[in-house]
Simulated assay, not measured.
Amino acid sequence: MAAHWWPRLRRDIALALLGSAVLASAEAGSVDAGRRSFGLHCQSCHGSPPDKLLIPAVLKGANAPALIRAAIQNQSQMARLASLSDSDLANIASYLAHPATTDVDRVLDWAEQRYPALLSPHAATSFAEGFLYRGYAGGVYIGFNSAQAYFLDSRTGGGPQPLGSLAAFLQQAEAAGF
């Protein structure tokens, strides 16, 4: 017997993804890509993670790629970074805002808040068989394999059901402040 909430969850997710396609806001920054970019371009001067006491101005770049661009343009020692793309800067800004998390954790935290009746209590992120996932009461799982999201309800006996891309869900999570 299929759960009554499954069609509603799929509809809500489809509407959220459709809504993300028409958002006027900038592309969501990836914490994971930002961590890599920060390591390549910023870490030698700013430390990793950025030293809040040594360089507090760096943290003003959290979720503010325009401030990072302005710093690059106004600091002669950062001129070599002028070729960084808007996407690179959005990723670095996301990393500065969330240095201790991952993109998957941001999306799962958002999903837990959005669907508390289904995705509770809060669970730690685990890894098994190529999936980063969280398991919830009643045998419900949300997981990510590469850049794809999956849903599994162990009560129905089926396999993981694809939900959409990590990038699409990350846009929704970022729009909600995660």
Rank of each mutant, 00 (worst) to 15 (best):
D153A: 10
A100Y: 11
L96P: 00
S48R: 09
I13Y: 08
S37M: 05
S76G: 07
P162V: 12
G39F: 13
A3C: 04
R134C: 13
G138A: 07
L132T: 14
G177M: 03
S30M: 09
L119Q: 10
A90M: 05
P116I: 01
D51C: 01
T125N: 02
D153Q: 08
A62S: 04
G39R: 05
G177K: 02
A111D: 04
A70Q: 12
A173M: 08
A167L: 00
A26P: 07
E27M: 06
R11Y: 02
F151T: 03
A128R: 15
Y141C: 09
D153R: 03
S154E: 14
R80P: 06
R69M: 00
G130Q: 04
I92S: 10
A167G: 02
Q73S: 12
A82K: 14
Q75V: 10
T125S: 09
G159E: 03
S94E: 06
S20W: 11
A175V: 05
L67A: 13
N63K: 05
Q161T: 11
W110A: 07
P49R: 04
P7H: 10
D103H: 02
L163K: 01
A137K: 12
Q148A: 03
F178L: 02
Q161V: 15
A176S: 13
A3K: 08
A173K: 08
E27Q: 14
A93C: 09
S76V: 06
P7N: 08
C42D: 03
F131Q: 05
N74C: 00
S20R: 02
G177Q: 03
L18S: 09
A2S: 15
